[in-house]
């Protein structure tokens, strides 16, 4: 039998999960459960939404009202749920492919609306589920099944993309730094407006193997040695920051939230919720 936290927050009858040995999706999912408990979100007021991918399978294990939607569309479903009942805490769990490739348009528009949803990206810089195709966050030069000679695309920086598109909370943490991941998740869950956390994650099976990054331990060790807090990064040159993971909160501001603004429209039009 697992820990009390896992017994409370997960559907233990579906465990152990199917993720590969060392895949960080498991520890990030546990971190979310811990953050939800620390903040005290009520199960009856919390909905967790995912798209498609190894990461998106998390909703099958979480003991909440969950919905496993179509590839890239988690934010579209989440937007509908939040608008139907703005009192709900709506959390989206997604992968880098799900949120920034097929779902990229939904991401920027959810940011722009500043709708009260927390979006957690389990960013392993690859399409894990389909066998290792490069994604919009695969670093330039890295390999995937669809980039056998190296990826020539530039990679997205998800927190910077989200912040510039209008998200009011944008952060990055790592799978190695799981304690920080929990505290940043707590802040994001309490934030009013759209919050995005990019969790630098590892896929030892596809990204790791194809890029000769070693096993899960080596990949986490690499994260440990190559992470810089955002405050320190501000005093570093682009050259010094090359290949580093900048961690911390990039943006945390208060702006009008979408469902509250929408409520005003309903009232102006003489309607009731």
């Amino acid at each position: 039998m697992p820990s009390e936290l896992v017994k409370r927050e997960m559907r233990t009858e579906n465990l152990p999960h199917i993720w590969c040995p060392g895949c960080s999706h498991g520890s990030v999912m546990r971190a979310l459960c811990q953050a939800i408990e620390n903040v005290g979100l009520e199960r009856k007021n919390t909905v967790i939404v995912s798209g498609i991918g190894c990461s998106s399978r998390a909703v099958g294990y979480l003991n909440f009202d969950t919905i496993h939607t179509t590839h890239g569309r988690a934010l579209a479903f989440a937007t509908g749920i939040k608008l139907a009942n703005p009192d709900l805490h709506v959390i989206v769990l997604t992968g880098d492919g799900d949120i920034s490739a097929i779902g990229g348009n939904h991401l920027i528009h959810a940011c722009r609306r500043n709708i009260g949803i927390t979006c957690i990206v389990m960013n392993n810089t690859i399409y894990g589920m389909t066998g290792g195709q490069y994604s919009p966050t695969t670093p330039t030069g890295d390999f995937g099944t669809t980039a056998p000679y190296g990826n020539i695309d530039k990679d997205f920086d998800i927190p910077l993309l989200a912040a510039s598109a209008g998200a009011t909370f944008a952060a990055r943490t790592t799978a190695y730094g799981i304690a920080q991941t929990i505290t940043v998740m707590e802040k994001a869950l309490k934030h009013k407006g759209f919050s995005v956390i990019d969790v630098a994650s590892i896929c030892p099976s596809y990204y790791g193997r194809r890029n000769k990054k070693g096993d899960a331990v080596k990949m986490l060790q690499w994260q440990k040695e190559n992470s810089v807090p955002v405050k320190m990064a501000q005093n570093m040159t682009a050259e010094e920051l090359k290949g580093m993971i900048v961690t911390g909160i990039f943006k945390d501001v208060e702006e009008p939230e979408y469902t509250e603004e929408y409520q005003k429209i309903i009232e102006k039009a003489g309607g009731k919720r």
Partner: peptide
């Protein structure tokens, strides 16, 4: 160990 174990196979029990 509990925080990082991806499989919930080790933890501190009260």
């Amino acid at each position: 160990c509990e925080l990082r174990c991806p499989d919930y196979a080790i933890w501190l029990q009260e």
